[in-house]
Write a protein that binds this DNA or RNA. Structure first.
Lengths: 241, 241
DNA sequence: GAAGTGCTTTTTGTATGCGAAAAGCTGTAT
DNA sequence: ATACAGCTTTTCGCATACAAAAAGCACTTC
């Protein structure tokens, strides 16, 4: 939006170094556009298969085509849209096969992530996990789907973070977001079990038991995968939460 | 089976369906630029840390800044350059930590890939693997480093392909290329052992022994990782064989 | 009436232009 | 001589302009 240059003055050397938190960078417009489009895709405003016309998006977002183009191309490499050579961008249509493949890869990555997390977790890490676990269980009580999804994502992201492998964490982030996109419409039924498994996982990490953490996470991921397959049969029209 | 979703117009009855090879698309310029820049980075023409000026690259490649920009941004998401907000692109400088993390992720992904490959390999798949194995051993004899690196990449890519998991294969492709970038300078010494392990891997896949294939690949990947660490400190490792 | 062909419209791909931010340099004052 | 301030240069980020390709439509023809 309007990023008015509100007198951001470069601090002189006289300022305390600790407080000199790198002032927010001009925030590249393409990033904002990327976020906006991703949000529109994830919440189904832009339907799978839909043709995305650069000019339309540009006008809708109030920017020129250039940032839109750049955002679309990054969306492609991240698997959200298909960019056909001289034809433009289409919202990616997830196939059953692809969903399963993503879930399989996720399972492998998350299992490894859990193992590493158990090896590296500090006391404060465990504290954070317990906090997230609690937040998830609270969301479970209120049956707020949106909060549940976020709590789930936060916990998994935290585990990935604690694994101390940035490359791994980044990959998990990408895969998880796409899995969530496919999975959200049917996320409700498994929530209870899912959080019980999470609790088990946190316990294993707290004990520093890598093998057990990996095993629990593997079971958790495969369970999710199974649930996806079981649920896939009934074509749900609109699930309201 | 998942048929083509929508509107793929059936070819005229008069045309042979098999021969209707989709004519090559105009080949977007950004793709050519991406490939060119990646090549320049991998072969060290563009050194790590170097500042890449759009205008210079554009002139050098004989195109305008636009395709260069788009290529640079994709290079960023793939981890080859760092795009600092208002400052431009810099060739990514791999850290020791990052290399190890990549090797770790690669190990996990490739292990899973090998397992799947053992489960899905057909007779012709095995034939292909044996051919690639033979090509590698020949390259080993001629001691042609470039050919060796390519043969190695081809074999691993083939295994990923045979796993029948496209998502996995794509990820392995990304990770492997970066690993190779870090690893190539020291690729020579381990070639012999490496190809012995490859032979073992192919055998396991041919037998359809998923556990063994996974175990062999895991050992192979961890060995590579170890070699990387040993080599990094230019100790007098004398002969590794 | 149906099929094929050529034209028009739409949309992408590439190039260029312009403003702004950051880095570098020079001159001056202490 | 050094350090700071202000200016200049460089380079990016975004907008716009133009050309080429593809899709859609209407017209013609058999």
């Amino acid at each position: 939006m309007t990023s008015s240059p509100s007198g951001r003055r470069a601090p002189r050397g006289s300022l305390s170094a600790a407080a000199t938190r790198r002032v927010e960078r001009p925030a590249p417009l393409r990033q904002a556009v990327y976020d906006a489009l991703l949000e529109l895709i994830v919440n189904r405003t832009l339907a799978p298969g839909q043709h995305l016309v650069e000019a339309e998006l540009a006008e809708y977002l109030g920017v020129s085509r250039q940032p839109v183009r750049e955002a679309l191309q990054r969306l492609q490499t991240d698997g959200w849209v298909d960019l056909r050579p001289a034809q433009g961008a289409f919202v990616h249509t997830p196939t059953e096969e692809e969903a399963d493949q993503l879930l399989a890869v996720r399972s492998v990555l998350e299992t490894y992530s859990a193992k590493l997390a158990a090896e590296h977790a500090t006391a404060s890490d465990v504290k954070l996990l317990r906090k997230l676990q609690k937040a998830g269980e609270e969301a479970l009580v209120t049956a707020n789907v949106e909060r549940l999804v976020k709590a789930n994502a936060d916990l998994h992201a935290a585990v990935a973070e604690i694994s101390r492998n940035k490359v791994l964490a980044e990959m998990i982030g990408l895969v998880d977001r796409r899995v969530r996109w496919y999975y959200t419409p049917i996320a409700r039924p498994r929530s209870r079990d899912s959080w019980n498994e999470h609790a088990e996982l946190v316990a294993a990490i707290a004990e520093g038991d890598a093998d057990r953490a990996g095993e629990v996470m593997h079971r958790h991921a495969e369970q999710t995968r199974q649930t996806y397959h079981d649920r896939k049969a009934p074509e749900s029209s609109t699930d309201s939460d």
